[in-house]
């Protein structure tokens, strides 16, 4: 599975959303992405990409797009796949 696929799957399975909803999705836009959902999403992403997210990055992780930017710092690239 490509990194983009893994990333999307983490959102879709954690929040039970459709792929079409992901673009532009922000923290607290949907009721599933509340503070508890956020912790679940972070755990799933850490496992999927075998990374340990820094607490500041966990706090800054405010949208679907911002998350890609943050993960790229950990060597998880989703561009040009």
């Amino acid at each position: 599975m490509s990194n983009s696929n893994k990333y999307d799957t983490a959102f879709i399975e954690t929040f039970q959303v459709d792929a079409q909803q992901l673009s532009g999705l922000q923290y607290q836009d949907i009721k599933e992405w509340d503070s508890i959902g956020h912790m679940q999403l972070m755990s799933v992403l850490e496992e999927a990409f075998s990374v340990e997210l820094d607490i500041d990055d966990i706090i800054d992780f405010s949208s679907y797009e911002k998350g890609k930017e943050i993960l790229s710092k950990y060597g998880v690239s989703m561009a040009n796949e």
Partner: peptide, 13 residues
């Protein structure tokens, strides 16, 4: 949320 915070704290990472 407090139970979740604990769970998050003891996550493997």
């Amino acid at each position: 949320v407090d139970v979740m915070t604990f769970a998050f704290w003891i996550r493997p990472a």
